[in-house]
Design a protein around this nucleic acid. Structure first.
Lengths: 253, 253
DNA sequence: AATAATTGTTTGCAAGGGCCGAACGCTCTC
DNA sequence: GAGAGCGTTCGGCCCTTGCAAACAATTATT
């Protein structure tokens, strides 16, 4: 029953985190910039940067500081912890090639969907998603496919935390509407996004489970092509087959 | 004249860093594990983890903590800051396809070489290198190609910091030997690794400069194939042509 | 050229906060 | 149901962090 709030935290660590996130936003900055932006003295910022520099989380070009490639190392490591990643890549490349559309993989973290891989078919349209991008979970098919597998309390927690902001006129913005949709997804076996995130884009998505939800895969494309039998039969069945292949691989590795 | 030592640092930030790096090593751990491993009280570890959790740098499965995908986001960001990355990928894929060997890209950070991309040709042999891996700079062709472009003081700094540890019997372990080699590289225009890092593997590498050194690219393979005219003419010229393409692209973007 | 204005760096000092240790609640095991 | 393990909470002491102001070093201005 971990309450999400009010544990005792370490303030000086928080300022270091603020520094790192500011650098993530602006690319690079000097001591004075950071001191002004984060409302600390120059001396304070300096000693924090010295700590980060000593541990190589930060590099300096002259008098400007930026994030180091150590973050890349950590990122690659975190990705490699997902054992299913390699199989997913293989299957999504196949799906994208067969369908010509965009095929994606995402997982859930802290109540958001995180895109982890994107394969482009030869007719693929570009959307804003990209590796490591975070997105609200209720308005994309990938997210709903995962939500449908979660226990009710967990869904409630996530909605409490992030709300149900509208992205288009089709976005689900009410809790009971969401609950009904999730029920439908469970019955149907896959999730659908009917222009709920981006106007003109429809998606289908299937969850990947392996002793709990590990993520979801999806196919997305323009509504004109995502219609009729293709949208209701062909693509879902391809998708479910791929999800199945991934799950079987995961089970025996 | 930034001395590398003795600036005032923030100790509590250091413990958070220790926690993060420990998690990077063991994958996941509980409060008690961390307290024992890092020699702190459980309470201390707890408040640090709470800070990390609140900022989403860490996830918890039950009572075990692990690094979150936020590191992936930061890693991707840092990679994207290297504007030349996309061109490099394209050129290395070509090089690997043409030659059948392994083609790689690395840059320098904190006196070490950091691999950033690896393309496999159809005869490629597997080496231990991989994206974000750090390696000593003096014993690989990529590293020497970069060192040869640095001012003498910078080379000295790096050697002071990391030394010249031997990896094979061919590794350069003396400063004057290194200086002579770097001079030769400057005259020749590219660097060579003759089994100095791994027995049986030879490489050629060329620096990528754009208002300073941004990295280096290399081709590596088994010594049996990396010999004669191919090693001394064909591969170096292909490599230099690719380096040139990359530099021109970098200049106009 | 000389001076002014910025920058990053250092340091003394005071107060605020981090760390420990012990106690608590919880969940599993035996 | 008692024990051992875990994560969590909390009071209080002491250390350390953070500020402000002075310093150094570079750049802009006159």
């Amino acid at each position: 029953m971990q309450g999400e709030q009010s544990s005792r935290t370490v303030q000086s660590v928080q300022t270091t985190i603020d520094i790192v996130e500011h650098l993530r936003e602006v690319g690079e900055a000097g001591v004075t910039d950071l001191a002004a932006a984060l409302d600390h003295s120059k001396g304070t910022i300096h000693s924090h940067l010295a700590t980060l520099l000593e541990n190589e989380y930060v590099v300096r070009n002259g008098d400007r500081y930026g994030l180091s490639l150590k973050f890349l190392d950590f990122g690659e490591y975190v990705k490699s912890q997902l054992e299913i990643y390699d199989v997913v890549v293989e299957e999504l490349d196949d799906l994208a090639a067969e369908t010509g559309e965009v095929a994606q993989f995402a997982t859930e973290e802290h109540g958001r969907a995180v895109y982890l891989y994107k394969a482009h078919g030869n007719q693929a349209v570009n959307t804003a998603s990209s590796v490591s991008k975070r997105e609200y979970i209720h308005c994309i098919s990938l997210g709903k496919a995962m939500l449908a597998q979660f226990p009710e309390e967990r869904v409630d927690e996530i909605v409490d935390r992030h709300g149900l902001p509208a992205k288009t006129s089709n976005t689900i913005t009410e809790r009971d509407e969401l609950a009904a949709e999730l029920q439908e997804i469970r019955e149907r076996g896959y999730a659908v996004d009917d222009e709920e995130m981006i106007e003109g884009i429809r998606c289908v998505a299937a969850p990947i489970t392996n002793d709990g939800v590990v993520g979801a895969i999806s196919i997305s494309g323009p509504s004109s092509r995502m219609a009729g039998e293709r949208f209701e039969e062909t693509l879902p069945s391809k998708l479910l087959r791929s999800a199945n292949v991934i799950e079987i691989n995961a089970k025996f590795s």
